[in-house]
Write a protein that binds this DNA or RNA. Structure first.
Lengths: 336, 336
DNA sequence: TTGTAGGCGTTATCAT
DNA sequence: ATGATAACGCCTACAA
């Protein structure tokens, strides 16, 4: 694509590039007449400064690298929405990378983001990532990094998540208060941060209400499409009277499995809902949800990152920012 | 972030930057010993060439600008997934922009993408976009552009969509074949390409089966959250015996409205389904779907774009590429 | 086989 | 008020 540069303007107007540059930047030490001439001509030719040249000169790209396990996921696409909205307003653009839940790909894409000279990184860790040493290295090289959603306590950097503990507590408590006693918990990969926080919330609620924690009522689903059904079958053998699922995908899979088996339990299913679609309203019987503020998590995370990048970290922010979840009770019937 | 450059290596090894450059690019005209030295040292320091400097030099960024109405949308996030996957493999990165369904924002973001020196643009038009003249201008300046999903016949450039006509035809035909005669069509904004294609498919199917097209059975929903219910009410006054909805959002909204009103029609609802979630399986009564290949649309579109960028447009490709949809019959009962 | 110089587009510094 | 020059990091003629 042919573009016009400051040189073209200089040549056409028989002045030097420095004058053009100054005129365009509205320097005070320039003849108003020259200024007018330059600006008019530039507008007529639709001149825009070459941001690549600027990046090279200023040694910063105004690009934020975002690394997520996968884009095609309600939670992450909403988070990216929030990220893009704020980044745009503050003069940054967003390059998206997918780690595909793989540690190796994550390392590669982070390298790529660094090679692209991203000014900072916004990362939600892949489920395969157990070791964040490679991020610590980058941090020591002064690369601003902010984690969101899937965070790690092994990296001392601002991290933004939903309050998964409180959300899981509220969900479990709700089920207990409507009379359930054997609450099954269907969740995702055991070692990632959000799973552990949710599990802790679930356990805390059980404990507070004097219910015993039974690990037979907990199942961890991998990433496969067809993993949910057998797990639900497993859990059914424990005769639960409620399900608490840790994600949309699991909740829907769980409901589908129950429906297929014609089991009457789902009246009591609850889940961490990432979306605000009205699907939950449609499901019969209805299901309560815990809504995660995905959009806001993205916004806060990118705000943190830009503060780091621009060295504005004014007040010493708490390192782990937890955004509130919201329990949405769609329907509930007392039992027992 | 402090990075090491070719200069650092040159200084450390007491050679010139050109030698370092050549050694790293594995030039044949270089002393194997020097080469080894340079490469070893570079690896030890984890040297990576500055892609911004490269972009400036080569006058290309290896960045693809993607402009979508919104990211947090099943269809678009799946398409972006496909785009990112292919782009990554071919050495490109993806910068995401949202037009928020607004023409003005679209123009702005396209400008930004151009200012960012994107090598090419992948655009799904905002519903507010009626005039693509500004894109034609860019095209004349040799900027490669590919449209996908929401395309425009006013721009002569490769365009990739689902075969909306065939999909709508199949959906309507399915409903007719199971005995419906008054098929309501709930669709989106009237002027965008996909709406028109779907409407045409709907009409063609009616015609083929000797049913009269009745515009009272068609309603156009805007972008608002709460627009669907009143439209459904409207349609109910026409006593339809089936619904054909043009999107997930509409189908779900429609089902929810029907359920709320305790209307027994939904047994026959069908929709263009963008997702492969099992929600459809859960809904009672079940609903058939027409699946759109969002991921593949993204893949094909970016492939087209990269071909344009790299000037490889070997065979004169057909300008409008339509990818097949798939009718998924979840359940159907004959009536009448 | 290696070094020197120029240029990609821009701006800051130092003249004039 | 304006111009010449150098520099950001890299590559590549051209020279040695």
């Amino acid at each position: 694509m042919d573009t016009i540069t400051i040189k073209d303007i200089a040549r056409a107007l028989n002045i030097s590039t420095s004058t053009v540059s100054r005129a365009l930047r509205d320097s005070y030490e320039i003849n108003p007449e020259t200024k007018r001439l330059v600006i008019e001509y530039a507008e007529r030719l639709n001149y825009h400064p070459n941001s690549i040249a600027l990046s090279l000169k200023e040694n910063r790209s105004r690009v934020i690298g975002v690394i997520v396990p996968q884009i095609a996921n309600n939670f992450f696409s909403q988070a990216i929405d929030g990220i893009e909205a704020i980044a745009y307003k503050r003069g940054y653009h967003v390059i998206i990378f997918q780690s595909q839940e793989s540690y190796e790909r994550e390392v590669l894409t982070v390298q790529q983001a660094v090679a692209r000279k991203a000014d900072g990184l916004l990362i939600s860790l892949a489920s395969g990532t157990l070791d964040v040493a490679y991020l610590r290295d980058l941090q020591e090289k002064k690369l601003p990094i902010v984690l969101f959603d899937r965070v790690s306590k092994d990296l001392d950097t601002p991290s933004v998540t939903a309050d998964n503990f409180a959300g899981a507590f509220a969900a479990t408590e709700h089920l207990i208060q409507t009379g359930r006693r054997r609450i099954a918990h269907l969740t995702i990969l055991p070692h990632i941060s959000i799973t552990q926080e949710r599990l802790a919330g679930y356990r805390a609620a059980l404990e507070q209400y004097g219910l015993r924690y039974d690990e037979n009522l907990v199942r961890y689903a991998g990433l496969g499409q067809y993993e949910v059904e057998p797990l639900v079958d497993d859990l059914l053998e424990q005769s639960p009277d409620a399900f608490f699922s840790a994600s949309d995908r699991l909740a829907i899979g769980c409901l589908a499995a129950l429906k297929k088996r014609n089991v009457a339990i789902p009246e009591t299913v609850s889940l961490i809902g990432f979306t605000n679609i009205t699907v939950a309203d449609l499901l019969a019987p209805p299901m309560s949800t815990v809504e995660q503020p995905a959009f806001e998590i993205g916004q806060v995370a990118v705000d943190q990152l830009i503060s780091l990048i621009e060295g504005k970290q004014k007040m010493p922010q708490p390192n782990l920012i937890k955004l509130p979840t919201k329990l949405m009770v769609r329907a509930s019937s007392q039992i027992g």
